[in-house]
């Protein structure tokens, strides 16, 4: 449907891009096919300035307080958090697995890095996701071009810095094409230390 254009308010600090928050939650009874994924994902708001971001974000449940199988996504406005989206179809994502209890802090830090344009990879960043699961939580950052190694390495190195990850943290990269093939977001990844 049509949504009104979101712009920075008077005196607010504009962001380089507008970003849209999405929320999804899997109903355990339903298969995780593309159609049910699209039906389960809901757009919850778009922000255009630093101030609008904080207003929106401070009303959201912290991801660490979510239960069950759910995800928050923050993507550039106009990019759906789906593998098939035009901006994502040649892309992939870095995956960081977090033990329980860390998701809220890491989610905030990765968002601030993205909103503040800390990655320095041109137009490559599409968005970030925090995935709440039963045993662990998972942080992902999606970029447009999976086979651009200069970009993916720079994203990885920036993540280590902005999240202050210990040097032995395992980071995994998975192309969306591979996710489509095995119908899984987090299995069969390429490990990078």
């Amino acid at each position: 449907g049509k949504r009104k254009t979101v712009t920075p308010g008077v005196g607010e600090h504009p962001l380089q891009y507008n970003y849209t928050f999405w929320y999804s939650r899997r109903t355990p009874s339903r298969p995780a096919n593309t159609q049910s994924y699209e039906q389960n994902i809901k757009q919850i708001g778009t922000v255009a300035s630093v101030e609008q971001f904080w207003k929106f974000y401070s009303h959201l449940v912290r991801p660490g307080d979510l239960t069950g199988h759910s995800d928050f996504h923050l993507f550039k406005e106009g990019i759906k958090p789906m593998w098939e989206d035009e901006a994502n179809k040649n892309g992939g994502k870095w995956i960081i697995r977090l033990r329980k209890g860390l998701a809220s802090r890491f989610w905030e830090n990765i968002i601030l890095a993205m909103l503040g344009e800390q990655f320095m990879v041109g137009e490559e960043i599409c968005g970030v996701v925090v995935s709440i699961r039963f045993q662990e939580d998972i942080l992902s950052i999606w970029n447009k071009t999976a086979n651009d190694q200069v970009t993916t390495s720079r994203i990885r190195d920036t993540l280590r810095r902005v999240l202050n990850l210990p040097p032995n943290t395992i980071m995994e990269y998975k192309t969306h094409n591979d996710s489509l093939k095995d119908n899984s977001s987090f299995r069969n990844t390429k490990i990078s230390l």
């Binding site: 308010g9 630093v50 800390q118």
Partner: peptide, 21 residues
């Protein structure tokens, strides 16, 4: 064009600015 870059501290400082109250 120029890119709008904000560091973490700048963003955190805006969290409690009068505009977000």
């Amino acid at each position: 064009g120029t890119r709008i870059i904000y560091d973490r501290k700048f963003l955190l400082d805006r969290r409690n600015s009068p505009l977000t109250q």
